[in-house]
Design a protein around this nucleic acid. Structure first.
Lengths: 110, 110
DNA sequence: TTACATACATAATTCACTTATGTATTGACT
DNA sequence: AGTCAATACATAAGTGAATTATGTATGTAA
């Protein structure tokens, strides 16, 4: 697991990007996908995940659809057009941040 | 200027690394050096800088030396051996974080 | 039947940062 | 001479995204 400090500010971008790449997903599924993609290095906590999803929905970046699986509720999230546009910017911003940081820290990336 | 959210958690690493690379420096000088290295993209605020320097000093990662330049006080900071060891880890950690993030965001770095 | 994984949610707390404020010197422009 | 910007330090109040803690409930394997 990474130092959690570094993750700050990346959660929204992660959620939007994973939803853009994978289509309709529910919260728990997102945590598992992120865990898989990060080889166990990013473990999203529920206390961060759900409020973040609710916020993105309130901002119109995500849409929801609640489905009853047997007796269990699942809330599926889909990225909106606005969300797709934003995630592009966010990813570009992240890449620029990395470039800047590598210049400041004088480290070679990739 | 970058989204300040992304910078969170990187300040200590930046300070330690810049002091490791440039030897003895004072606060204001560090802000200018970081501004230069980042091509104006990272502008350290005093409210973040000074408390961070004080904390690193309290933790034994930095040493200080106060000098009177005419009538103006300057506080020079030098990285300690402990600090040098830590900054190595922090930079490695940052590189690993970038690798993980690029896997999650499915973006090419560098 | 107990424990872990699945699945959602919210409240209290933490803490690194921003914003605001304060003090004071130096140099440049007018 | 006066004003503004840059230099140089510092701390306090406020913000906000996260952690930690807690709650509810179902499905499943040992």
């Amino acid at each position: 697991m990474h130092s959690p400090e570094l993750l700050k500010g990346t959660l929204q971008t992660i959620l939007l990007k994973v939803l853009k790449d994978n289509g309709k997903m529910y919260g728990y599924e997102i945590t598992q996908k992120v865990k898989e993609l990060s080889v166990g290095r990013i473990l999203l906590t529920e206390g961060a995940l759900y409020p973040a999803l609710h916020k993105l929905e309130a901002e119109g970046l995500l849409q929801t659809e609640t489905v009853l699986m047997g007796k269990r509720v699942r809330k599926y999230y889909t990225i909106t057009v606005t969300g797709k546009n934003l995630v592009k910017e966010r990813v570009i911003e992240f890449r620029e941040f990395i470039k800047t940081m590598s210049a400041v820290l004088q480290v070679q990336i990739a």
